[in-house]
């Protein structure tokens, strides 16, 4: 039973790795020794560039430090913050102080 599970697990892992190599992002022209500045693979054209260094500097644009508000991240953090605070209050006041005999001195 354990052997079967291990075999299936290894097989699934190998399959995922294979598929992610075939369909995933990677530079397929790595072995070329000539400079192909304008050539881009199908994957690169579809997904946009991956590195800032693969685009000419004249085509880049900078923004201010304050120009972008990470609202999504802030919401997620606010949620975590609320969870941590409430869990702390619950654990300390309910599970610890109110739960069973505790040393008072």
């Amino acid at each position: 039973m354990l052997l079967l599970t291990t075999a299936i697990g290894l097989g699934v892992t190998a399959g995922i790795l294979l598929l992610s190599y075939r369909f995933g992002w990677h530079d397929r022209s790595d072995t070329s020794f000539e400079s192909h500045g304008d050539e881009r693979t199908d994957t690169q054209r579809a997904a946009g560039v991956m590195y800032e260094s693969s685009v000419a500097e004249s085509e880049t644009e900078s923004v201010d430090h304050d120009a972008f508000d990470p609202v999504g991240t802030a919401t997620l953090l606010a949620l975590y913050f609320a969870v941590v605070s409430l869990t702390w209050l619950f654990m300390y006041f309910v599970e610890f102080l109110d739960n069973g005999p505790t040393v008072i001195g």
């Binding site: 941590v84 702390w88 300390y92 610890f96 102080l97 040393v103 008072i104 001195g105």
Partner: peptide
């Protein structure tokens, strides 16, 4: 948040009287 943690533990020790 840190202040809240310290305040609750202080309350436990001083207000509710719990000790070690």
């Amino acid at each position: 948040l840190i202040a809240l943690f310290v305040a609750t533990v202080t309350y436990g020790a001083v207000g509710a009287g719990y000790g070690m």
